[in-house]
């Protein structure tokens, strides 16, 4: 699949060319080529173990291809290059990753420290940090949690703090790993509303998910992964309308119903998120 084939008119935020990656001896990524255009909201779709999280980590420069080429904002990304102070600073300033498990991301004693961590590492001035921190607390309605310890927070609150802790540095690119996983419907709706609000703002957002119900609302374009390979890409309506593709990639499963007439029927089924805009 040619990377340049996707949105050739738009500058790319990331480009992968024949990228391979393995965890020790277990291959996770096999010759993937794709282009993530700047300013677009992208959904990475795939079942568990399809390589979505690995792709996000590659894009966040937390791991690097074993083979192939990965570029960010037109520059090659490699472990050696990321050792350069200036490049690392610029990259971390521009790209933020929200991990799937907030426990991993919230490692500071209080919410205040959590939000201050990123700007402090990037060398911001104290006054600027405090100003942005207050603004971010208000924006995410977590002012009352400012001095709380993360272990006291609910799942939805942890997710909001994790998002705020990344967004405080105002990254151009936001990478999210399963942002609605393990959240109650209300918290899911909040996250979906936030992601939907990012569309058209010029920010590049890459969301890894297998929740098809949110895709139409949060994405301009989709990539579908299966077993470490890119198997499809396209607009959400095209991808979501392709039942065969979704079944083949285990994003859709056959669901048995026994109807009143006593006959069993099989329907395509995916879980419905109330208020997310798309149905089953």
């Amino acid at each position: 699949m040619e990377a340049a084939a996707v949105h050739p008119q738009t500058a790319s935020a990331f480009e992968l060319l024949d990228v391979h990656y393995a965890y020790q001896d277990i291959p996770a990524f096999n010759g993937v080529s794709l282009c993530i255009p700047a300013g677009q909201c992208i959904a990475l779709l795939g079942a568990n173990g399809s390589g979505k999280s690995t792709l996000l980590r590659l894009l966040a420069a937390l791991c690097f291809p074993d083979r192939g080429r990965l570029t960010a904002f037109g520059e090659d990304l490699s472990a050696e290059r990321m050792q350069q102070e200036a490049l690392a600073y610029t990259f971390r300033r521009r790209v933020g990753l929200v991990f799937q498990n907030p426990e991993v991301q919230l490692f500071n004693p209080t919410v205040f420290d959590e939000l201050a961590f990123g700007p402090l590492q990037l060398g911001w001035k104290r006054e600027e940090i405090l100003r942005c921190l207050d603004a971010m607390l208000a924006e995410f309605s977590i002012v009352h949690l400012k001095h709380h310890s993360p272990h006291r927070l609910s799942g939805g609150e942890k997710k909001r703090v994790a998002l705020a802790s990344v967004l405080i540095t105002r990254p151009e690119v936001l990478l999210l790993d399963e942002p609605t996983a393990a959240l109650d419907p209300c918290s899911q709706s909040d996250v979906v509303r936030f992601l939907a609000g990012c569309r058209g703002t010029g920010r590049t957002v890459v969301t890894a998910t297998h929740n098809l119900d949110i895709v139409a609302e949060i994405a301009d374009y989709c990539f579908v992964l299966q077993a470490g390979r890119l198997v499809a890409q396209g607009a959400p309506k095209d991808i979501l309308g392709d039942g065969a593709l979704l079944r083949a990639t285990q994003l859709l499963h056959a669901h048995w119903h026994v109807h009143a007439d006593g006959l069993a029927h099989i329907h395509d089924h995916r879980h419905h998120l109330a208020g997310a805009g798309t149905g089953t």
Partner: peptide
């Protein structure tokens, strides 16, 4: 495993081996 993940989360937010903290 948790320690490894936390380290990656710290790197993703600009940690370069030196801790900076804000005294409020």
């Amino acid at each position: 495993h948790l320690a490894t993940e936390i380290h990656l989360a710290m790197i993703a937010r600009g940690y370069r081996g030196e801790v900076h903290l804000l005294d409020e």
